[in-house]
Amino acid sequence: MNEGIALSTESLVKSYELDGQKFNAVNGISLAVTAGEFVGLVGPSGSGKTTLLAMLSALLTPTTGKVIIDGSNLSDMSDKQRVEFRRKRVGFTFQANNLIPYLTALENVELMLRLNGELNAAGRARSRDLLARLGLSDRLHNLPSQMSGGQQQRVAIARALIHNPAVVLADEPTASLDTERAHQVVETFAQLIHEHKRAGVIVTHDLRMITYTDRVIQMRDGDVARIYTSREEIKELAASGPG
């Protein structure tokens, strides 16, 4: 295993049966993400991005292949261990319904520490600082219903990072945001991934957002269609439009 690799997959396959026909939503994907690297996952709708993300986060069991995070093989874990693994080692942001509606911004972030039994004075202070870092110091005590979509996404980002997870996974975090807010959110996200040295994976169908990533994996029909690694290639792809 390579030094610094936080997340890797080996020949990951997820098969579904559709009208008696077996097909692979994810068709043998191998990849590796190092700590501090921000990877973009792009591709047309139905290409298998969310399915892959679900397997990376131990929410979905692969048909074959392996997911290894922090040296642990997710397939070797019991269901209970996988829940604990998600709680401790994974940070999440979702397309929608990211936050608990009856908790304030600060409480939503602190909840992640609470779930891990780690909420103390230092954790509270870190939660505030992280939210401040995301430009939300005046929103700490607002409920999600009192915040904009972009602000809610930023709270979710804080929650995804606060407990020092190995990997941070984001599924279409900009889907409901206008362009300007989307750029702000993903840019800050990228900065924090780099600073905190997390392995970050962002799923997006908006190609402009990948300017902030270090590498882009383009999927098509469950396969990796192409990998963009150089800044030039990524810039060019990002310039090709909203996707």
């Binding site: 986060s57 929410l59 209970k80 829940v83 604990e84 998600r86 709680r87 401790k88 994974v90 999440f92 979702f94 929608a96 319904n97 990211n98 608990i100 509606p101 992640m112 779930l115 891990n116 929650r159």
Partner: peptide, 16 residues
């Protein structure tokens, strides 16, 4: 449902 799904995704156990 969406809120509880999210809670479980981020690591809340069923018993919680």
């Amino acid at each position: 449902v969406p809120q509880v799904g999210m809670l479980k995704a981020i690591g809340a156990a069923n018993w919680m």
